[in-house]
Amino acid sequence: MSTADTPKRSMRTPLGRVRNLGAAHSGTSDFWRQRLTAVAMVLLMIPVLVIIMMLLGRNQAGAKQILGSLPVAIIMLLFIIASAWHMKIGMQVVIEDYVHNEKLKLVSIMANNFFSIAVALASIYAILQLSSGV
């Protein structure tokens, strides 16, 4: 068996190295995280809806008091992280399905990452600022 593509000696066989990686060569981690974040959001949906209902009709001071309280902030942070991660993976799947030009695909996937991370970070920063009483 040739070892031309393996400069360092490995105890793993060529079959072992590619097993479970699939056609995208990246394995099933995104598939798994997509489901993980989906289940997380289903579990968080009722608490999040309750929080939004509590905020109805309140001004900024009232919203700050509710969003800044510890349990609410934690639920919101969990939901923000799960949704940003979930939407990043989902949009990447859509891009990979419909954008066939390699360069455009690369740029789209980069833009998707930037957008998702920016959304997550801005939301997290806002929640933390509301919590810290600054």
């Binding site: 900024q60 919203a63 700050k64 969003l67 959304v119 801005a122 939301s123 920063y125 806002a126 929640i127 600022q129 509301l130």
Partner: peptide, 9 residues
């Protein structure tokens, strides 16, 4: 959602 949270902060 970002606009709403950032505005609240």
């Amino acid at each position: 959602l970002v606009w709403w949270l950032v505005a609240a902060a």
